[in-house]
Each structure stands twice: as structure tokens, then as C-alpha cells.
């Protein structure tokens, strides 16, 4: 047993120091693969994009260093600001719509019912379809000549004849919002569901014993305890919507009259349709900064008083 006794004096301090240093090194080694990946796939490309944004960088021909000209040009780019405003508008509307559908779905799917698993699967199913494929499917549904919606509307007498839902801004916009809610509500439902299931049933029961109504329990217990889950779902939804592209490109082609061109669509169009890679990079940097600010604000607003 004596051999296991800790020695006394200066020796253990040094050993502890050694150990903590070794621990630090081991920790660094453990995170090294992740760090390297972040460096290669995020930090370096970000640096390159910023470097590119300081150039007139055509796809054809040689890049020319122009300092911050791309950024000053961006200030006067009317379409970029229109696109950005539209993207924010879309993000607000679609996020509210997704939560309005996903929260009730989560509450419904949480309780044990005979077919709970089936419901959960059914609600989640559209999530596994890629945005590209889902957009193609909806492009057909919304088609004026061969699509299902215009046929149903005309057949049921809602419209006099087949209408072209993509010819008008409001119908195009709301069609895409419905499509995105259909596509992503299931994902948000699952996130919210994990939050709901994390709330101890004892707390709920105690409140019930104290005579709290179901609304009071939802308002005073469920919502506050789900703060972090809601924050996660909100940040994912907002950053995803701010980067929306596929559905507007595939279904509406930015139309009618460029009115559904999102910020990313405009970046894509400048970079790969007009071949101004430097300018596209500058637009991307600005969008990145805006996204970071939005995310930070969201995190602050949703932080618990005692810290998250």
C-alpha cells in the first residue's frame, strides 16, 4: 500500500505541471483534426474570398487589384439592396410560418398516442427530399398548363380558368413560403420535440397539482425551459432563410421581373452569370457580416438572465 502513497515536497508540483502540460498537449492533439478541417475548409477559403473581393477578378482574363472599389460599387448596386430587403422580408415571414406550424406539430407529436411514430415520420418525410428536387416538384405543381394547383383551382371553380401562379409576385412568394414550410417544418418539429422531451414531467405535474392551467404551464414552464432549443431552431431557420437560393432559382427564376431574386441569387448571378468573381466575393463578405450580426443579436436576445 505504501507504494501508492503520494510523495511529498517539490516533486509533485512539477509532476502536476508536467501532467497539465501533457494534458493540454493531448487536448490539442484531440482537437487538431477538427482545427485543421476548419482551417482548410473555412478560414483559408474565407481569407481567399476576402482577397478576391479586393480585385476586379473576371472569370475570363487576369485579376487586377482595386482595393475597396468592389465595396464602394456595392453601395450603389440597387439590385443588391432590393435583394437583401427581399431576403430579410422572406426570412421574417418564413420563420414565423415555420414556427407556427412546427410548434403545434411538436406538441402534438410529443404525447404518446397510438400512431405517434407514424405522425412523426410523416411530418419529417419532406425534410429528406433535397431542396433542388423539392423545388422541381413544386415547379410542376405550380405550372399553369400541366400543374396540379391551377387545375384544382379551375376545376373547383375558385378561378375562372387556369391561373399562372408564378406570374404575380404575391402568389409566387406565398407559394414558395408554403413549399418551404412543407419542406422544413418537420426538421424544426424534431428539434423542438427534443426540447419538449427534455422537460421533466415532475415539474409539469407539480404545476398541475398547484392548479396551473394548460396555458399557464405552457407559458410559464414549457416556453422558458425551451429557450435554448428555440434559440437553436431559430438561428438555424434564420440563417438558412437568409441564404435561400434553390427554390427561387428553380421555381421562379427570380421572377416575376427580378422581384424574387434573393441575396445569394444575386451573388450567384454576378459571379457565375456575369463572371465578376471579385464583385461576387465582395457581396458574399457583406452578407457574411450581416449574418454574423443577426446571429449574435438573436443569441443575446434569447440568452437566459443567468446565462445560457
Amino acid at each position: 500500500m505504501t507504494s501508492l502513497q503520494q510523495p511529498t515536497g517539490a516533486q509533485p508540483v512539477r509532476r502536476r505541471n508536467n501532467r497539465s502540460r501533457r494534458n493540454q498537449l493531448a487536448g490539442l492533439l484531440f482537437v487538431a483534426p477538427a482545427l485543421i478541417l476548419v482551417l482548410i475548409f473555412f478560414v483559408i477559403p474565407l481569407g481567399m474570398a476576402f482577397w478576391m473581393s479586393l480585385h476586379n477578378w473576371p472569370l475570363l482574363g487576369k485579376p487586377r487589384f482595386i482595393w475597396f472599389d468592389n465595396y464602394s460599387r456595392l453601395l450603389q448596386d440597387a439590385q443588391f439592396w432590393i435583394s437583401l430587403r427581399f431576403t430579410v422580408y422572406y426570412t421574417v415571414i418564413v420563420t414565423i410560418a415555420i414556427f407556427a406550424v412546427a410548434f403545434p406539430l411538436a406538441l402534438y407529436a410529443e404525447r404518446s398516442r397510438p400512431l405517434t411514430k407514424l405522425y412523426r415520420t410523416a411530418f419529417f418525410l419532406p425534410v429528406v427530399v433535397g431542396f433542388g428536387s423539392a423545388s422541381l416538384l413544386w415547379a410542376w405543381l405550380l405550372d399553369v398548363d400541366s400543374g396540379l394547383f391551377s387545375y384544382v383551382f379551375a376545376y373547383s371553380g375558385l378561378t375562372e380558368k387556369r391561373i399562372n401562379l408564378l406570374a404575380d409576385f404575391d402568389t409566387t412568394f406565398w407559394s414558395i413560403v408554403v413549399m418551404v414550410v412543407w419542406k422544413t417544418a418537420g426538421f424544426n418539429m424534431i428539434i423542438l420535440l427534443t426540447g419538449l422531451q427534455g422537460i421533466s414531467t415532475e415539474v409539469q405535474e407539480a404545476a398541475r397539482m398547484d392548479g396551473a392551467s394548460s396555458w399557464q404551464r405552457f407559458r410559464r414552464i414549457t416556453l422558458p425551459l425551451m429557450r435554448r432549443t428555440i434559440a437553436l431552431a431559430l438561428i438555424l431557420s434564420v440563417s438558412g432563410s437568409m441564404l435561400a437560393f434553390d427554390q427561387f432559382y428553380i421555381i421562379a427564376d427570380g421572377g416575376p421581373q427580378n422581384r424574387t431574386v434573393t441575396a445569394v441569387y444575386w451573388i450567384f448571378s454576378q459571379s457565375f452569370m456575369s463572371f465578376r468573381l471579385g464583385y461576387g466575393a465582395a457581396l458574399s463578405m457583406v452578407l457574411l457580416v450581416i449574418l454574423v450580426i443577426i446571429s449574435v443579436v438573436q443569441l443575446r436576445l434569447l440568452r437566459n438572465p443567468e446565462g445560457m
Binding site: G254, P256, Q257, S274, F275
Partner: peptide
């Protein structure tokens, strides 16, 4: 040419759609 005429977000396409149907 691509920027002013062919591009799907360019001024030519946007104008034509606006003037024909707007």
C-alpha cells in the same frame, strides 16, 4: 452581351417582362 441581354437577372429580360405584362 451576356450581362445586358442574356442574363436571367439582366436589364433586357426584366424590362421585357415588365413592359409586356406590367
Amino acid at each position: 452581351y451576356n450581362d445586358i441581354i442574356n442574363s436571367s437577372t439582366g436589364p433586357w429580360k426584366q424590362m421585357l417582362n415588365e413592359v409586356f405584362f406590367g
